[in-house]
Design a binder for these strands. Structure first.
Lengths: 342, 342
DNA sequence: CTGAAAGCGCTTACAG
DNA sequence: CTGAAAGCGCTTACAG
């Protein structure tokens, strides 16, 4: 089989098709675009369509974009492809984009000099709209966003400066985790929170403390430790937590990757999960179900988050406020990492 | 802070800048593009640059693309964002793309009716080149690729029909894993291979069998089991392998996610790793170092793979053969999942 | 039912 | 050193 990229034959244009079909290029254009107002004799349409397939005509998307000021592309910027949470958000966003006639492309700023540079590169003129997930926008990024004449939306993140975001109800998820531990008889409950810069971490922390209060339980500062949303971050935080004199009997870990690190650290200290310590976390990824012991977790509707973000981006005028908190479809998935307090 | 997307002020064009600076738009264009052949009086250049920043001029990328037949975008298609292996390939590709003046966007066919449809959507006219990772191209996809007038390249995958690919030396990696197990005194060595459709799986399998032969060891069919590149796939394959009368003392698992599933299955059967069974795998992700026990693995230069793919895509004419096998930078990472045979 | 024309915003040879 | 012109390929009102 050949590479099919041989002789650089000149690209077929509307004019070529029009000439072959013996009509004006305007007619061909309207046939290609299925213009419903087009009145055309069936036999003419047949001739045009025959010429299109005959010549293998493919519209020049740059020309179309120049004319219509639309690219048909939606962009999604994420901080890091290594985080499995984004995989599900992307999947939901891609599907929703496609069903609205767009193609969604994803990029991370990892290779760029700065996230701001990357936003600038992708956001200006290459896409019809931009979804931005994770990481807080710096002042510089904010300025760039403000300069865009395309709509954009924060995903899985709220920002005091923006009224355009779609997020999950992280506080509620944290509350469900606490409720579960309390149901199992735990009272000595600790929280490994995400970094202060992460909006999700703040909301889960808030959910944790208010659920504890609702159950009449104390949540002292010594029982709340901060760690990155990574395996190493979780392990470090667990080490800090366990060096205290009184060990908690249960931990709610804000993030699933961190929770895996916590399991690692606990095992390294000879502590058994769930016999010595129960662990519950947020998000249900492959990871959660395949570590030992498998993690009890609050599943979040991440695909739905991605899909909703695309729809809100498309359905709202660029200057409208979009403040969506998805509170449904949170489910506690029971696995081996939590047990009754003894 | 406002959304900055307020009154739809008309977009600033070259003509506007030219008028403000009192020159022709051709001059402005050549200033914007840093045309080295441009002879211009310093004072004129200053005037033009002042007008550019004053008016906030941003070139219309669609118009530029129409004129130059270049978009400045490179595409990467992957089967699935959930696989951490791709995260590293993407990171390498993004960095290389950026340093060559392109922006790389990534998409998966997950939301599309078919991979073919997706290729068509992304590949034709929206990008200057396309990288395709994972999954074998169907006949239909192959036809679409052949119809492209942009260059494309397979990444981490070889195909009998294509002479354009960049891959890692998977056979060598498998050999290194076997060598390690033999060094530890193992002779009863099994292999959990990837699916037959995966080119990497075939090359690792070949590397496994030839390394075994080189050591004078038998590798009977009963000791080679196929499983998907997922945690579940690994667990299932391990179950099959362990139901045989004679248990192997060591297993080389083709894929890191599958290896995690293997650990899970072994633990479920009360077998200790590495005391009862040693496990070694391919790829070094976060996962490998944080499961219990941490996995001994052969680290592959995935970032380099992504970066090399971008450079080969850009540096070669679209119809040239590109057949690169990266054999360097494979390293055995020793962790707790392998031990001397007893 | 179909054709002719304008124009989207840019780059690039060419003229002076 | 700078300007005028052509043209990339398309869509969309408008004329007939």
């Amino acid at each position: 089989m050949t590479q099919g990229q041989g002789a650089a034959t000149k690209r077929v244009t509307l004019v070529d098709v029009a000439a072959a079909a013996g009509v004006d290029k305007a007619i061909v254009s309207r046939v290609v675009n299925r213009d419903p107002t087009l009145l055309i004799r069936p036999e003419t349409r047949v001739r045009v369509e025959a010429a299109i397939t005959e010549l293998g005509y493919r519209p020049n998307l740059s020309a179309r974009s120049l004319r219509t000021a639309k690219t048909g592309i939606l962009g999604l910027v994420i901080p890091d492809f290594g985080n499995p949470v984004y995989a599900q958000i992307i999947a939901g966003a891609e599907a929703a984009a496609l069903s609205s006639g767009h193609v969604l492309v994803t990029g991370s700023a990892s290779g760029a000099a700065s996230p701001a540079e990357y936003l600038d590169l992708l956001g200006n003129g290459r896409v019809d709209g931009l979804l931005i997930a994770g990481g807080a926008p710096s002042a510089q990024e904010q300025r760039i966003l403000d300069g865009f004449d395309i709509p954009w939306l924060l995903v899985n993140r709220r920002d005091r400066n923006s009224h355009r975001y779609v997020i999950l109800d992280d506080a509620k998820a944290a509350g469900m985790a606490v409720d579960h531990l309390v149901d199992l008889g735990h009272t000595e409950i600790a929280h490994i929170a995400g970094p202060k810069t992460a909006d999700t971490a703040q909301r889960r922390l808030k959910g944790f403390t208010s659920a504890m209060a609702a159950h009449g339980l104390r949540a002292p500062a010594s029982r709340i430790v901060t760690g990155e949303y990574t395996m190493d971050g979780g392990a470090e935080a667990a080490a800090k937590l366990l060096s205290a004199r009184r060990r908690p009997t249960a931990i709610y870990v804000a993030n699933v990757a961190a929770a895996v690190g916590v399991l690692h650290e606990l095992a390294g200290r000879g502590l058994s999960v769930p016999n010595d310590v129960s662990v519950v976390t947020t998000h249900d990824t492959d990871l959660a179900s395949h570590v030992m012991p498998a993690l009890t977790t609050v599943r979040m509707p991440l695909r739905k988050l991605g899909a909703t973000a695309v729809r809100e981006l498309l359905d709202n005028p660029p200057d409208a406020a979009v403040e969506q908190i998805l509170s449904d479809d949170l489910t506690l998935v029971l696995r081996g990492s939590t047990a009754r307090s003894r």
